[in-house]
Computed example of a mutant assay.
Amino acid sequence: MDLFDEQEREAGLQPLAPGAALLRGHARSRGDALVAAVHDIAAASPFRHLVTPGGHRMSVATTSCGTLGWHSDEGGYRYTARDPHTGHPWPALPELFVALARDAAERAGFPGFVPDACLINRYQPGTRLTLHQDRNERDECAPIVSVSLGIPATFLFGGLQRSDPVRRLRLVHGDVVVWGGPSRFVFHGVQPLMHAEHPLTGACRINLTFRRAG
């Protein structure tokens, strides 16, 4: 291992696979401002439990911000320019969000990333997210940047096939995972959350997932 690799590890960068990395604590110092921004976004576009194309109610509550927002119903998964629940455009991406996503992507090897969408998920204890791939984005060259806020979660990081082995990564407040390039379409998910409390979020976890959707 060369000096650069040692310095990166000390700074909290953990390689996961080609094109994928875990940045320990990368968003921790901005946690208060990030959570406050989420509250503002949810005031305009409230959290809701979407329905899958198969008719199942998602246990994760979600909202979005940016030029496009993610939506799911019996008609399928897609991005929309307006919030179907309010009829209004999605709230704008705060500059704080854009800067964080850009910085994290650059550290992980993806300079110049500018998201146009942020999917915001709220997890309560017992909530989970089954293994899936992110395939609704038009720009498949841009990475996914995922920020954890609040109580801990076990992130499932698999391979390009659903049957590939899965790594279990404990994510805590401020951790960021970035995946793109050869890892852009890895299967990933979240195990059911354990009961816990966090000073900023209470008994829940907030996940910000930045994408280049349009």
Rank of each mutant, 00 (worst) to 15 (best):
E10V: 08
R122W: 08
R168G: 15
G189W: 04
Q191C: 12
A36W: 15
G214I: 06
E95T: 09
D116A: 11
C65G: 03
R167G: 02
L131H: 10
R82W: 04
R212W: 09
V172S: 13
V190Q: 07
P111L: 03
R167I: 13
V51Y: 08
C118R: 00
A203K: 09
P18S: 13
A36V: 06
M58R: 12
P46A: 14
L169G: 04
R184S: 04
R135E: 11
L50S: 06
T201S: 12
G76C: 13
G75M: 13
Q124H: 14
V38M: 10
D32A: 11
L156V: 04
R135K: 14
R78L: 01
G159M: 00
L96K: 08
G202K: 09
R122K: 14
A108C: 11
L200T: 05
R107A: 03
F4E: 15
P182M: 01
C204W: 09
C204T: 15
H188A: 04
T63A: 05
E74Y: 09
P125E: 13
R9L: 04
E197K: 11
M1C: 10
F187P: 01
L100W: 03
A11S: 11
T62W: 07
A92T: 10
V186A: 00
F4M: 15
N207K: 13
A203L: 13
L208D: 00
W70L: 08
A44H: 15
R48F: 11
P182Q: 15
G126S: 10
N207I: 03
P91E: 08
A37F: 04
P53F: 02
G75W: 12
R211A: 04
P91V: 01
P18D: 14
C118H: 00
L200F: 04
Y79D: 00
R168L: 05
E95R: 13
L149R: 11
L50E: 02
E10D: 12
Q161I: 03
L169F: 09
T52N: 13
G202E: 12
E140Y: 14
D164W: 05
M58Q: 03
T201E: 05
I41W: 06
N136S: 15
E95K: 10
H26G: 11
V98W: 12
G75E: 06
R102Y: 06
H173L: 07
R9W: 10
A142F: 00
G75L: 14
F97G: 02
Y79L: 01
R57D: 09
A99K: 14
G31V: 08
R9H: 08
R122N: 10
P192N: 13
G158W: 00
V147P: 00
T86M: 05
T62E: 09
R170E: 15
P94Q: 07
S183L: 04
F110I: 02
L22W: 06
C141T: 14
G31K: 03
W70Y: 12
V35N: 07
C65W: 00
G12F: 09
W90R: 08
T62G: 07
P165I: 04
P18N: 09
A11Y: 15
F97M: 11
L96H: 08
A117T: 05
L200K: 02
A21H: 00
L50G: 03
P111T: 06
F113T: 00
P53I: 02
R24I: 10
S59W: 10
Q124P: 03
F155V: 09
N121V: 01
L23T: 02
G12C: 05
T130H: 14
C204Q: 12
E137M: 08
D139C: 12
F157G: 01
P84D: 07
F185D: 05
